[in-house]
Nucleic acid binder design. Structure first.
Lengths: 138, 138
DNA sequence: ATCAATGCAAAGAATTTGCATCATG
DNA sequence: CATGATGCAAATTCTTTGCATTGAT
């Protein structure tokens, strides 16, 4: 996932500079969603010299390349999820405690093409978010 | 939609006070997604005496009741979408210009039950977000 | 060697909180 | 008429910008 993402950066003409691989690595390792605060923290743990601003810049870059996607889970700042190479992500959010269960299901096949035709858009991915109450909060 | 939401508030023991119906009305009228800044603006246009903080408090309340759902579309602050009474919402986000096309499709039927059984959760709704490039940005 | 990308620190947004006051049920 | 809810303004939190400097190609 890290290599795939670095290739994507190169393909788009972006350099592989210091903070970029670190942020991508943190996101990849997490296997889930991380808030910006968590990302800042983990990046700092790896390399204290990486500035806050750069982390945000990398997050913006990865978002614009559809490598990650900000989602609202809980709290004030967005959480970022990594998308599959196909651009997908699904999860369940517990609206009570904020716990997130990551899914690997993808049920939206076929609808993509239909929507592309219907609206003249070119789709690159989707996010499917279920919400409800988790087993423990019930 | 306004009445439905007000009933929901009453059911949960919340009072019907000044800012509540105004915020709900603004959200209902929009038929789409509104950022908090837009909501603040429109609420102020209706009643200048309603304070910022109260608008945020109402948004939090409606979110906790699953009447609305915050999503990150573009920019720094979340946008809020109204869910159907069944708790659903779908849209397409253009990752280039941020334009959003609201959908009324719901393709996730059946999966809900499967996930509830599989994870022991109780689901109340979902959000399906497609992203890609809109006709104008292509 | 060039210029994209960085780190820093300060500025800027956006949201929340503390508290006295108000008004719904 | 009790207390949940409010408006205000200050405080806090989060993110971005300006700019001199660095470093990947």
């Amino acid at each position: 996932m890290v290599d795939y993402t670095l290739d994507k950066l190169r393909t788009h003409g972006y350099r592989i500079t210091q903070p970029r691989p670190v942020v991508i690595d943190v996101l990849t390792e997490s296997h889930g969603h991380l808030t910006s605060a968590e990302i800042l923290e983990r990046v700092a743990a790896v390399d204290k010299s990486i500035g806050r601003a750069s982390v945000f810049r990398v997050l913006d870059l990865l978002t614009s390349l559809a490598v990650i996607r900000p989602v609202y889970v809980e709290g004030r700042s967005p959480a970022y999820v990594m998308l599959t190479p196909e651009g997908h992500h699904s999860h369940i959010v517990c609206v009570t405690c904020g716990h997130v269960i990551e899914l690997d299901t993808c049920v939206v096949d076929g609808l993509d093409e239909q929507l592309e035709e219907q609206y003249g858009v070119q789709l690159s991915g989707h996010l499917l978010e279920f919400y409800g109450t988790c087993a423990q909060c019930r």
